[in-house]
C-alpha cells in the first residue's frame, strides 16, 4: 500500500517535473517566438526603410538626369548656331527665309519644352520632334544631306510611349560632326524596330566616322554619357556602358564610312 502511494507520489512528482519542464519549454518557446517576431518586424522595418531610401535615391537620380537632359536639349551650341543662321539670312536680305527659319525654330523649341516636362510621350510626338529637328537642320545647311526614317510595321506610333528626346542628341551629332565637312550624298538613316518587347533604335550616317569626329567634340561624349545614364534608369541595368553601341563603319569595312549608334528601349503601350 505504502509502496503504491510512494509510487503514485513519484508519478505525481514525475508529472510535475514534466509539467515544469514543459512549462519551461513553453516559456522558452514563447520567448523564442516573440524574439523571432520582434526580429522579423525589425527586419521588415529595416527593409522598408532601406527600400524607401533606395526609392528616394532612384527618384533623385531620375530628377538629376532629367535636369541634365534639359540642359542637353538646350545645348547652347545649337541655339546660337540657329540664331547665327538667321543673322546670315538677314544679311543676305532673304526676309522670307529668315522668317520661316525663325518660326520653325520657335515651333521646335515649343515641342521640346512641352515634351521635356513628361517622362513619356507618344512615339508619334517624338517622331514629330525628330522630323522638325532634321528639317530645321536641312534648312540651315541648305539641304546638304538627306534623311530616311524607317519604322517597323508592328509599331503603332499613336499607342506607343517613349522617353522624350532620346534620339535627338545622336542625330545632332551625326549632322554636326559626321557631316561637318560637306559630304557628297550625305544620308542619315534612323531605324526603329520592334522585337521581343523592345524597340531597337539605330542612327546611321555616312559621314566621316566617329573616330575622326570624336577628337574635336566634347558635346558628343556628353550626349552619349547622359543618354547612357537615362537608359540605365529606363532599362534598370547596372552597367551603363553597355547600353549604347557605337560603331565606326570604317573599323569594320575599309570601303565604308560613317557611324552607327544603336540602343534599345522598352516597348510601352499606352492603352
Amino acid at each position: 500500500m505504502k509502496y503504491e502511494t510512494s509510487q503514485k507520489e513519484q508519478k505525481i512528482k514525475i508529472l510535475e517535473k514534466n509539467k515544469q519542464l514543459s512549462d519551461a519549454k513553453n516559456q522558452r518557446n514563447f520567448w523564442l517566438i516573440t524574439g523571432l517576431i520582434i526580429l522579423f518586424i525589425l527586419f521588415a522595418i529595416i527593409y522598408f526603410l532601406a527600400h524607401n531610401r533606395q526609392k528616394l535615391r532612384n527618384k533623385q537620380k531620375e530628377i538629376e538626369t532629367e535636369q541634365k537632359l534639359l540642359r542637353l536639349q538646350m545645348n547652347p551650341h545649337f541655339i546660337f548656331n540657329a540664331i547665327f543662321a538667321i543673322q546670315n539670312f538677314i544679311y543676305e536680305n532673304d526676309t522670307e527665309k529668315s522668317s520661316l527659319y525663325l518660326s520653325n525654330f520657335a515651333k521646335l523649341m515649343r515641342l521640346i519644352l512641352e515634351s521635356s516636362r513628361k517622362n513619356l510621350i507618344t512615339f508619334q510626338d517624338e517622331l514629330k520632334i525628330i522630323e522638325y529637328y532634321i528639317q530645321f537642320q536641312q534648312l540651315r545647311r541648305e539641304n546638304s544631306f538627306d534623311y530616311k526614317i524607317n519604322i517597323s510595321e508592328n509599331i503603332d506610333t499613336e499607342n506607343t510611349l517613349v522617353p522624350p528626346m532620346l534620339v535627338q542628341p545622336f542625330i545632332e551629332n551625326a549632322i554636326e560632326h559626321g557631316f561637318e565637312d560637306n559630304i557628297e550624298n550625305a544620308l542619315l538613316k534612323i531605324n526603329f524596330n520592334l522585337k521581343n518587347n523592345y524597340i531597337f533604335v539605330s542612327i546611321e550616317d555616312n559621314g566621316k566616322g566617329i573616330k575622326k569626329a570624336n577628337k574635336k567634340s566634347k558635346h558628343q561624349s556628353l550626349a552619349t554619357e547622359i543618354t547612357e545614364e537615362r537608359l540605365s534608369i529606363i532599362l534598370k541595368t547596372k552597367n551603363k556602358e553597355n547600353n549604347i553601341k557605337i560603331i565606326d563603319l570604317q573599323m569594320i569595312d575599309k570601303t565604308k564610312k560613317g557611324t552607327i549608334i544603336s540602343f534599345k528601349i522598352p516597348f510601352i503601350e499606352e492603352f
Binding site: E96, S99, L100, L102, S103, N104, A106, K107
Partner: peptide, 9 residues
C-alpha cells in the same frame, strides 16, 4: 496664331 508668326500657319 503663335508668335513668332509662321507664314504658312
Amino acid at each position: 496664331i503663335l508668335k513668332p508668326i509662321n507664314i504658312i500657319d
